[in-house]
Design a protein around this nucleic acid. Structure first.
Length: 138
DNA sequence: GCCAACGTTGGC
DNA sequence: GCCAACGTTGGC
């Protein structure tokens, strides 16, 4: 199974809304590299839910429950989305500042390509970030 | 196909 | 609010 990180501006769609909705279609991605990442997601993969812009922190964990299908919010039909399900909140959110300070995380896609809204996370980084956030996991 | 202009994202 | 990074558009 693979690991990912998906970004959302809390003003547009926040973690609280994700928790309230439980399962949410992850739509609106309009970047080819991000699309490629979405298309590579499998059911059962997990992703960090990251708040960009105002909070800048990993605030929770979600699971992919439906693989890439045409994004209904795209008129062209050329974009895709996936469905993600709430797994749980990070006990202590991992901030971007924390991540940037940590030498083990300098090659994280989140840091290297700040504008990419859907990025892959290696197993090593996933476990490392989980430890930082106090995620006991399952 | 190159490149300048412009728009958007996201950190600070 | 500013700016850097990056994507897109359009003229040539």
């Amino acid at each position: 199974m693979a690991y990912w990180l998906i970004k959302s501006e809390p003003d547009a769609f926040s973690w609280d809304e994700q928790v309230a909705n439980d399962v949410e279609p992850w739509t609106g991605v309009r970047n080819h590299q991000a699309k490629k990442n979405l298309a590579g997601m499998k059911v059962g993969d997990r992703a960090f839910f990251y708040h960009s812009n105002v909070q800048r922190a990993i605030v929770g964990v979600v699971e992919i429950v439906r693989e890439a299908y045409p994004d209904p919010t795209a008129e062209s039909g050329n974009w895709v989305c996936v469905d993600v399900k709430t797994v749980g909140p990070m006990p202590s959110p991992v901030t971007l500042a924390d991540i940037k300070q940590d030498e083990a995380l300098t090659d994280l896609a989140l840091v290297r390509q700040s504008r990419l809204s859907v990025c892959p996370v290696s197993v090593e980084h996933w476990q490392y970030l989980c430890r930082m956030g106090g995620w006991s996991g399952d």
